[in-house]
Design a protein around this nucleic acid. Structure first.
Lengths: 135, 135
DNA sequence: CCTGTTATATCGTGATGCGACATAACGAGT
DNA sequence: ACTCGTTATGTCGCATCACGATATAACAGG
C-alpha cells in the first residue's frame, strides 16, 4: 500500500490542529470542573439541551451521542441524577426506555457554560479556520 | 452575573460541534489502535514529527504539547521506546534533558497514519466549516 | 562549593470507560 | 396468548491512564 506524499507542512498542520483541539478540550474541562461537572457530564447535559424539539433523550441516545457504551452512559446519568441535574422517567410509549430530562439547575449551568464556550470558540475560530484551510 | 441570550440554535450547534469532534477523535483512536498505538502515543509521535526544524523534542516539550504532566509524558515515552518507536538520548547541551527522536519504524507508521488523518479531515472539513460559521 | 531551580524518573492511587452478565419489556409470528 | 429473538437499561469487577507526591540528577548564579 503506497501513500501519497506528505510534506513537513502537513505534519506541522496536523500537529497544530490536534494541539488546538487539546487546548479547547482543556478549556472546556476547566469550565466544567469549575462548576462541579466532569467533562462527560457536561456533554450529557449539552446533548439533551442541543437536541432540537426534544425535551428528553433516552439512555441509549445519550450513549450514541457521546460515543460511549450504554453502561457508561448509565453511570454518567446516575451521578447527574444524584447531583439533581437530570431526572429519569420511563418512556410511556416504551417502558424499557428511560427518558432523561434536565432540571432547572442544569439549565442554569448550561447557560453559563455554553456562553463561555461560545466566547472561547469565537476566539479560536480564526485559528481553526486557518488550520482547516491548510489541510 | 448575567449571560447573553442563547438560542436553541446555539445549543444545537455546540452539541453538533462536540459530536463532530468526538467522531474525529474516535476515528483517530481507531486508526492508532489498528497500528498498535494508543491515541496518546500517536500524539507523541506526531508532536515530534510536526515540530519543524527539530529532529527531537525533550520530555518536557512533549508534555507541554500534549497538555499532560511531565510524568505522564515519561510513561508514554517509556512505552514507545519499548516498542522501538522512539529513542532517547541525553541532550549534550543540558544533560538533565532527554531528547526523544523517532525511529524509522515510527516514521513509517506516521506516514500511513497521517495520510489517513488528512483524508478524514478533508472529508469532514465542510461539516466543520459549516459548524464554525454557525457559531 | 552552596543553594535554589529545572528536568526527568519512580511509585502508588483514583477516576473512568469497558466487557460480561442480568433483567425487563417489546414485537413478530404462530 | 405464548414463545422467542431483539432491544433497552442496569450492575459489577477490572484494566487503563493520568495524576500527585516524591526522589534524583544536573544546571546557574553568587
Amino acid at each position: 500500500m503506497h501513500h501519497p506524499d506528505l510534506s513537513d507542512q502537513d505534519y506541522e498542520t496536523l500537529a497544530a490542529f490536534r494541539h488546538a483541539l487539546r487546548r479547547f478540550a482543556a478549556f472546556s474541562e476547566s469550565e466544567a470542573k469549575a462548576r462541579g461537572l466532569t467533562p462527560q457530564q457536561h456533554q450529557v447535559l449539552l446533548a439533551i439541551k442541543g437536541t432540537p424539539g426534544r425535551p428528553a433523550l433516552s439512555v441509549g441516545e445519550i450513549a450514541a451521542h457521546l460515543l460511549v457504551r450504554h453502561n457508561s452512559a448509565v453511570e454518567l446519568i446516575d451521578r447527574l441524577a444524584d447531583a439533581g441535574l437530570v431526572m429519569r422517567a420511563p418512556d410511556p410509549q416504551d417502558r424499557r426506555r428511560m427518558l432523561v430530562t434536565l432540571t432547572g439547575q442544569a439549565e442554569h449551568l448550561l447557560v453559563a457554560l455554553s456562553a463561555a464556550h461560545l466566547r472561547e470558540l469565537r476566539a479560536i475560530r480564526p485559528a481553526l479556520l486557518s488550520l482547516l484551510r491548510r489541510l
